[in-house]
């Protein structure tokens, strides 16, 4: 799917990412972890072409990203923004319908697709509400519905980039959104890349964990091998308590 080879990014002459090599497969959830300022968002932005690469290249299905036509790329790669600042009073279904932009559908098909995505995220009751009046978590789910709409005509496995999707959500919604991400990867063969701060969530929902520190990948692999007390202490300067809870595959970290 996505191959990141020797990628370096500088912002204002300051190195933010240094020599990143990463393979992002479809059908798996890749979780990006690391302390604040480690470069997680920047790595996502280089995947969505918001920052320019200083060196290296990124390919999607063996084709360099910049060779894609914008509309074609939009059908296969979608980004859930960390904060969506939409102040104009669009109704919820109109916001979701913005995800139809790259698609070629009749307006009736489009409306059906929007309804489908609304019900998938349990938003049907909010369909006609004005977006700016929603709570932070509701807004996040509407944005997710919009982003999923965008990917409905993908001819190859689509890529979904999520930057801290759970930051505004309550406990139940966090698990709902992450389960959905996992389901999209495992059942619909999406390549999901998600930035998370909660290590327990990462180990529960992530198939491949990538730990970034000061612009470099320190460790990657499944939770068992990456989230070791030594790595956590080295990267976060924090000594976790580790509890092996009954019924949990992975140990819990506090």
């Amino acid at each position: 799917m996505i191959d990141i080879k020797h990628v370096s990014v500088r912002i204002n002459h300051k190195p933010v990412l240094t020599n990143i090599n990463l393979h992002i497969p479809s059908g798996k959830v890749t979780a990006l972890l690391g302390p604040n300022g480690a470069g997680k968002s920047t790595l996502l932005k280089s995947l969505s072409q918001e920052v320019q690469l200083d060196a290296g290249k990124i390919t999607l299905n063996d084709r360099p990203l910049q060779d894609f036509d914008r509309l074609e790329l939009a059908k296969h790669l979608a980004v859930l923004p960390q904060h969506a600042s939409l102040t104009f009073p669009f109704a919820v279904h109109e916001v979701v319908a913005m995800g139809l932009y790259p698609l070629t559908l009749s307006s009736k098909q489009g409306m059906e697709l929007v309804d489908e995505q609304l019900s998938r995220l349990a938003l049907t009751s909010l369909k006609y509400r004005s977006y700016p009046t929603l709570s932070g978590g509701e807004k996040q789910r509407v944005q997710l519905a919009r982003v999923l709409t965008q990917l409905q005509q993908a001819q190859r496995p689509p890529v979904l980039l999520l930057d801290e999707p759970t930051s505004a959500l309550d406990l139940a919604q966090q698990h709902r959104v992450l389960s959905l991400a996992k389901e999209l990867a495992h059942q619909h063969n999406y390549a999901v890349v998600v930035v998370l701060h909660d290590l327990n969530q990462a180990s529960r929902y992530g198939d491949n964990l990538v730990i970034l520190e000061r612009g470099q990948i320190v460790s990657q692999g499944p939770a068992r091998t990456t989230l070791t007390p030594q790595t956590i202490k080295q990267v976060w300067q924090y000594e976790p308590q580790i509890v092996n809870a009954p019924g949990c595959e992975t140990p819990l970290l506090f």
């Binding site: 969505s48 914008r70 980004v79 923004p81 600042s85 939409l86 109109e94 913005m98 932009y101």
Partner: peptide, 20 residues
């Protein structure tokens, strides 16, 4: 008009939707 709607989400978001 559709591109203008998308632009109201933010420039980066509009770009991700395929707007030039």
């Amino acid at each position: 008009s559709k591109a203008l709607n998308a632009l109201l989400l933010g420039e980066a978001e509009a770009r991700h939707l395929g707007v030039e």
